[in-house]
Design a protein around this nucleic acid. Structure first.
Length: 510
RNA sequence: GGCGGCGUAGCUCAGUGGUUAGAGCAGAGGAAUCAUAAUCCUCGUGUCCGGGGUUCGAAUCCCUGCGCCGCUACCA
């Protein structure tokens, strides 16, 4: 698989403002950031969108409960979210809020278009209703026939609603899935979606008359947009659909990252909506898994959500970013624990990588007067190292194209491991004691420098601060595109004095 | 219940017909000294969940039993 070079549009879901972001939100957003940074480094024209979903009964009620207006509540959460993204070095190009004018306008336009295209019909929505909470409940959520929130017995009720004719798009969607088996990833999620679509699609209740905190329909103000169409539209409203320059440039999205809980909405409702609007579908939808906290599911009742701020204050932002993307394959579930994080930091970051940098720089100081020597002719092991570096660059590129962060990092660490072994086998300290072996020594030191330089490029999207620090110890500036040129072997200028600093990743004492 | 997936070293997993089944981590021993006591090397007789079958040959395909997990639509 090869990566598109020209433009790259990546999105996260818009996060619901009923709560502050926790590890799960940060996971999706960091993953999107790595993709964005990587593609920028490749030289692509990148657009990275994240944002917040701010409508709905829950927000309305939460605001009432805390004695503020819904928008005040949303503002509060948005403010804190933005601080977190800043802290985590997230480089989103835009931040969409569903309460913004630019978004609501497009939602109304979308409804108008659906209406005009005959994709909406007015009918009755019926379902379990809690009279006390004044809201409809999903059958699954009922606890012994009662409202899970207040315990009132739920009753069947009906209200007028506009249905989106989703069933009409089933054949087209199936055909699209047949032709695009990589549309939903990982594969297991694709299969789930496929078989459910095959089983049949129902029309979707798309509006509510009882909702107050939502976008009103232009052609029937008694109705307001119910969650899905409002929320999903963010991916194009943020681009200024239908006439915006950004829209023309970036749609369809290259990668839309989502949690597995919202797979159905993105893999079925979203494509159907786009088809109804005659718009191209996104290229890849990637549903990632959940983190548990030391083996336990995170939940409100247990109040055991991992707080990104606390973790990054203690261990650093880059260590956190590295851990999340290295510890579990993207798409699977995994477990978060400080023990596991510390192990990753000490083994991978401090011992393998940090120490390789440090020992290399020390040897350059001791054996070469602090300047990286020009390499002499490469022997077999130096050639092998050089070849592996090139393979690693290609491998990382291919794994990122596949949205497989952990595999990309594994490839980098394989190179780091081979470089550490190269130090052992070439024994620079022996070479340094024999005047006649100067040429060999120079080649070793230069080769190690090149490995480190290339590694710093490849790691930059994952650990921007540490990669930059690593580069500055090598007297290099921040990485610049295009990656495929910069990552070529031999670009480090011999004679450059290095600027060895403190260990990049101090070991964490347990 | 239906559909799908999984069950491989202490742990997390890779391996989908073919020589003595692998990696990382954890554990034991050793080498070396450039280094953040970092690094490197060596060490696994594992019922590849059980049973049956196909095949010259199966962890790998088929059937079956057991166990675990996901999805089963209006929960961002």
């Amino acid at each position: 698989m090869s990566l598109p070079a020209a433009s790259f549009y990546v999105t996260t879901p818009i996060y619901y403002v009923n709560d502050f972001p926790h590890i799960g939100h940060s996971y999706t957003t960091i993953a999107a950031d790595v993709l964005a940074r990587y593609h920028r480094l490749r030289g692509a024209d990148v657009h990275f969108l994240t944002g917040t979903d701010e409508h709905g009964v829950k927000i309305y009620r939460a605001a009432q409960a805390s004695g503020e207006t819904p928008i005040q509540l949303a503002d509060r959460v948005v403010e804190r979210s933005k601080l977190l993204w800043q802290r985590l070095e997230i480089t989103n190009d835009d931040f969409i809020r569903t309460t913004q004018q630019r978004h609501q306008r497009v939602v109304q336009l979308v409804f108008q278009k659906l209406h005009a295209a005959g994709a909406l019909w007015l009918g009755d929505y019926s379902g379990w209703y809690c009279a006390s909470c004044e809201k409809f409940l999903a059958e699954n959520d009922l606890t012994e026939g009662c409202c899970p929130d207040c315990g009132t017995k739920a009753e069947m009720a009906a209200e007028k609603t506009y249905f989106f004719k989703m069933s009409a798009y089933r054949e087209r969607l199936l055909k699209f899935l047949d032709e695009n088996p990589g549309f939903v990833r990982p594969q297991a999620r694709f299969n789930e979606v496929y078989s459910r679509v095959k089983d049949g699609l129902n029309d979707l209740s798309a509006t509510r008359t009882s909702l107050e905190w939502a976008v009103p329909l232009p052609f029937d103000p008694a109705h307001r947009a119910y969650v899905w169409i409002d929320a999903l539209t963010n991916y194009i409203s943020a681009l200024g659909y239908p006439d915006g320059e950004l829209y023309r440039k970036y749609w369809p999205a290259d990668v839309q990252l989502i949690g597995k809980d919202i797979l159905w909405f993105h893999a079925v409702i979203w494509p159907c909506l786009l088809m109804a609007l005659d718009l191209p579908l996104p290229r890849t939808l990637f549903a990632h898994g959940w983190w548990t906290n030391r083996g336990e599911k995170m939940s409100k009742s247990k109040a055991n959500f991992v707080d990104p701020v606390a973790v990054t204050e203690k261990y650093g932002v880059d260590a956190y970013r590295y851990f999340l993307l290295r510890e579990m394959p993207f798409g699977q579930d995994g477990d978060f624990s400080e023990t596991a994080l510390v192990r990753r930091v000490n083994n991978d970051l401090a011992n393998d990588l940090g120490n390789l940098l440090h020992r290399t720089l020390t040897m350059i100081e001791k054996y070469s007067g602090g300047a990286v020597p020009a390499p002499a002719e490469a022997d077999a092991s130096a050639q092998a190292l050089r070849a592996l570096a090139a393979e690693t660059v290609a491998e990382v590129d291919s794994q990122i194209a596949d949205v497989q962060f952990s595999r990309a990092l594994e490839a980098v660490w394989h190179l780091v491991g081979v470089a550490n072994r190269y130090v052992e086998t070439s024994k620079p300290w022996v070479l340094a004691s024999a005047e006649t072996r100067r040429a060999e020594l120079d080649t070793v030191l230069y080769s190690l420098t090149e490995v480190l330089r290339i590694v710093s490029l490849l790691l930059y999207p994952f650990m921007p601060t540490k990669a930059a620090a690593m580069r500055s110890q090598l007297s290099l500036g921040p990485p610049e595109p295009p990656l495929d040129e910069r990552a070529q072997w031999g670009r480090f200028k011999p004679g450059t004095s290095i600027a060895k600093g403190k260990p990049l990743f101090p070991k964490i004492e347990e």
